[in-house]
């Protein structure tokens, strides 16, 4: 559909079907995500949006279909190899490491880049100290970008919801992902926090060139920041294209957007 020739697909989903003991969550969905874009996945509750993200980074294994990321094709993805290939992820219900500080949470996002083994860690020799300081530098840049300086040593469990969402974004960002999957990054936020968050998302997209796939219910935000919108309903794809194209799609209006009164 909307595939301008100059854009390269970073993620291609082909005929994905996922069911849980006969309950079909996703039926035959195919769509592409192009490199460097912000792609929103929208749809009513239970449409299979979160399941879709879980399929992309290997938390769920689809019964049918193939996923190809960055030119490599898979029938099933594993969470670990997804992380290695550069797929970052935040969760709808915050999945931070609640016993750790903000700094440690974001530092843990860089674990794949740390090569020292536990002997080096135990004795604090060799690569251990050097790596720790190098990555601290990179993490501090993320902390500064997200404005978390004043709470870097605070345990995340004691933070407000909006800040926790921001820390989770920071943790995903710390891995320098090629593609970032954001599951309702703005749910339950105040207007101000939403504004901040959408600025962060756009800046990440622009400055680091990170492709972003996000699930969001706030249509204002979605239509504003997305380059590309995919609409799901009852596990099926009912719309796919540029925001204004999707907005005028009759199926989408019937299933999800409704008519403005």
């Amino acid at each position: 559909m909307n595939s301008p020739d100059n854009k390269k697909s970073i993620l291609v989903l082909k005929d994905i079907s996922l069911s849980f003991k006969g309950v079909k969550a996703i039926t035959d969905i195919s769509f592409n995500v192009y490199e460097g874009e912000i792609c929103s996945v929208i749809g009513p509750n239970g449409a299979g949006k979160s399941s879709m993200l879980n399929v992309i980074n290997g938390v769920y294994i689809p019964q049918e279909g193939t996923i190809s990321f960055d030119g490599k094709e898979f029938t099933k993805m594993k969470p670990h190899s997804a992380a290695v290939m550069g797929i970052g992820r935040t969760f709808q219900n915050i999945a931070l490491f609640s016993g750790m500080s903000v700094l440690d949470n974001i530092m843990s996002g860089r674990n794949l880049m740390m090569k020292a083994n536990f002997w080096e860690h135990a004795l604090n020799i060799g690569r251990a100290e050097k790596e720790e300081l190098e990555h601290r530098q990179a993490v501090e840049e993320i902390i500064e970008f997200l404005g978390l300086q004043s709470i870097r040593k605070t345990p995340v469990a004691s933070l407000a919801y909006g800040l926790q969402k921001r820390v989770e974004l920071g943790r995903a960002l710390a891995a320098k992902p090629k593609m970032l999957l954001l599951d309702e990054p703005m749910a339950g936020m105040t207007m101000e926090e939403k504004l901040d968050m959408s600025c962060f998302i756009q800046e990440i997209n622009r400055n680091y060139g990170t492709t972003i796939v996000l699930i969001e219910h706030d249509m204002g935000v979605v239509m504003d920041i997305s380059d590309h919108v995919v609409v799901l309903d009852y596990g099926k794809k009912i719309g796919d294209g540029a925001p204004d194209e999707v907005m005028n799609n009759q199926d989408v209006i019937d299933a999800y957007l409704g008519v403005s009164h």
Binding site: V59, L96, D104, E132
Partner: peptide
């Protein structure tokens, strides 16, 4: 160190740790 952070990550939320 990273080892300790990994331990605590597994303790606090193993799905997120895997991801």
């Amino acid at each position: 160190s990273n080892t300790g952070r990994n331990w605590m990550a597994v303790r606090d939320m193993d799905i997120a740790a895997k991801v």
